[in-house]
């Protein structure tokens, strides 16, 4: 349902993406792994139309590579950035409400669903976003994007800096998102949850995909991990 091919992107003079290619199927969790600076986040930004790029991005059979960011979002691609981008001057509830593309929108994840799954967010619904803990912010930013009812969501480093039990919770949430029919691109630097919940994985190196396979085939091939992931 989603595919990119021959995706190139530049930051000033440096050629960050050098022909990235991958696909994500319906309801599938796909991991995009790689060391810092190989272009994982840039891939997400290019897909959202936030950085200049060339190449083809096809979503639900339609080329979206030329669209503006808000149009891409409205077509059903969600993006949760690495820095979480919580709106600090708005309350938790207001943050969630801005996830809706308009107030009439209803989708797979409503405000009630979010609160049922994360009572902690309901307890703190009138607290300003800036006062949440790291884990709460991560929950909030993912739920905010879910409120917009995407069919495909890209989540950048959701476990970064979280306590182990929070990481486990995050793994459950992502598995649940996929079960509700939303395809997921999980972008990770470490293998924390990727091996456990992914259906397929891609490893990036030097702006290209250097490995594609299932978690099983990845684990069998030690050289991939050594060459492209371990520091």
């Amino acid at each position: 349902m989603f595919s990119v091919s021959d995706l190139h992107a530049y930051y000033g003079q440096s050629h960050i993406l050098r022909g990235v290619e991958f696909t994500v199927g319906e309801g599938e969790i796909v991991s995009l792994l790689g060391r810092n600076g190989v272009g994982r986040s840039t891939t997400c930004k290019a897909i959202m139309g936030l950085v200049k790029h060339r190449g083809s991005i096809v979503f639900k059979g339609e080329e979206v590579g030329r669209d503006k960011p808000h149009i891409i979002a409205r077509k059903g691609i969600g993006y949760v950035p690495e820095d979480r981008s919580i709106f600090p001057t708005l309350t938790v509830q207001q943050n969630l409400e801005l996830g809706l593309k308009n107030m009439k929108q209803s989708g797979r994840w409503s405000l009630d669903d979010v609160y049922k799954n994360f009572p902690r967010l309901q307890e703190r619904c009138n607290v300003l976003g800036v006062h949440l803990s790291g884990g709460e912010q991560q929950m909030l930013t993912i739920c905010r994007s879910l409120m917009g009812d995407p069919d495909f969501i890209m989540i950048d480093e959701p476990t970064e800096g979280l306590a182990p039990q929070m990481v486990a919770l995050m793994g459950e949430l992502i598995a649940n998102i996929a079960k509700s029919g939303i395809s997921v691109l999980l972008v990770e630097q470490k293998l924390t949850i990727a091996l456990a919940i992914s259906h397929r994985m891609y490893v990036m190196g030097h702006g290209k995909i250097v490995f594609e396979g299932t978690p099983d085939s990845f684990e069998k091939d030690d050289s991939i991990r050594k060459e492209w992931l371990e520091v």
């Binding site: 936030l50 808000h70 979002a73 981008s85 708005l90 943050n95 801005l98 593309k101 917009g148």
Partner: peptide, 19 residues
Amino acid sequence: LVIQASLTHPEMVNVLGHN
């Protein structure tokens, strides 16, 4: 709300589907 959020994170507001 959209204006307030855009004061700090215009890109995020944009990718949530707001023009």
